[in-house]
Design a protein around this nucleic acid. Sequence first.
DNA 1: TCCAATCGTAGAAACCTGTAAAAATCACAT
DNA 2: ATGTGATTTTTACAGGTTTCTACGATTGGA
Lengths: 229, 229
Amino acid sequence: MKIMVVEDDPHILLGLQEVLKSDGFDVASCNRGDQALAVFSKHRPALVVLDVMLPGLSGYDVCKQLRAKKVTTPILMLTAKGQEIDKVVGLDLGADDYVTKPFGVRELLARIHALLRRGQGTAAEPQSLEAEFKIGAATINPKTFQLHRGKTTEELTAKEIRLLQYFHAHAGDVLSRDRLLNEVWGLNYLGTTRTLDQVIVQLRKKLGDNGDEPKHLLTVHGVGYKLIA
Amino acid sequence: MKIMVVEDDPHILLGLQEVLKSDGFDVASCNRGDQALAVFSKHRPALVVLDVMLPGLSGYDVCKQLRAKKVTTPILMLTAKGQEIDKVVGLDLGADDYVTKPFGVRELLARIHALLRRGQGTAAEPQSLEAEFKIGAATINPKTFQLHRGKTTEELTAKEIRLLQYFHAHAGDVLSRDRLLNEVWGLNYLGTTRTLDQVIVQLRKKLGDNGDEPKHLLTVHGVGYKLIA
DNA sequence: TCCAATCGTAGAAACCTGTAAAAATCACAT
DNA sequence: ATGTGATTTTTACAGGTTTCTACGATTGGA
């Protein structure tokens, strides 16, 4: 999860980077308002922390420009005490929250987590992610994390579900290990590809495929795997 | 689609009217609580945005009176920071959601759309917030804040009731921590997700579930929980 | 047959959860 | 205001579960 920080005070910027990284975020940053849009386009962060007082272009304006481009990424503004907060969060700009300087690390992190949590989960989840689908005689239900096959029911883990969904979305295609790791584990995953094989083994068991004669998750020697639904 | 706004601060009222209109809604409004019912009857809006602090009649009372007339229209309350929120939503008054001032436009619109969506689609949700329901051998009574199981009776807290109600409304589905925090604690809750686990522990005790082999509140590793009724 | 790729297993590491107890907060009466 | 009891939240640490890694056995194809 990547967060972009726009802040000109190098002391505060360094502190923020450190705090965010130690909380498990990737950080992209810049120190001028007029660079913010370019950096945003390049990194596509999940959230933007934006100082109000910036050289080049004020935080207000950066915020406005992002919203004008239909960017819906959460924006958290850093304001000095006494700055006009109502305009920041209220009705004009479209920032989602603000913190006044000097701010406590705990409060900032709490607000970041709250903003990231918003829009997750709730009712509006894209149907595609929740729709049931079938592989052979098995029915996979992403809502309940269960796989029904005949009279047996298997519980699936989060990773197994994601992998099955990806296979199902590309049924019949030969999917390389690299591609599967990128799509299911994430782009910055560093590890051996054996991890993937491990999950395949588990899935074959739960699908009722015997390892030596799988009917659904087929090995493509030297490349990867392919799903026959 | 018409929305009614009851708000005495002319600055906020104007802003709201503008925002809502530019989002495609018709707006009816008034600035006194004791006019709200009359305006409601005349316009029959699809949703009501209701400030708590109002001249004439408080937002609490307006809300109560609407519900007393069997009006099921979604009500979104505007509260100042620090006002008693638990009483506003759900348990006593019958409001459907709340936003604390100062609020972001995007947050307000998101919640309005969520409420309108809820009303249309699944008819599952609008059941009374006070109706009894059962989980396994236990009967939960939201009116008395009690849980009856066999001959024992457990007292429940407000949080526990709200959480159980949400689980019950989505029985069988895997509910992520984020989703539960958003729906039960509110979108602007600042806190760790461990708080949720704590309540789960208490609820398992009261439901008679042992932690290592729960039958009703199951944990889904890495994601959240799911209720088997 | 030979070589490289894949598979199964088990233990390690990383991460997540259960739980109790302390701390903070809230609700209400003094 | 101040104190009191109840509720909620945080903290800390002990498990648990999943994921990862290492390594030898096995398999598939030239």
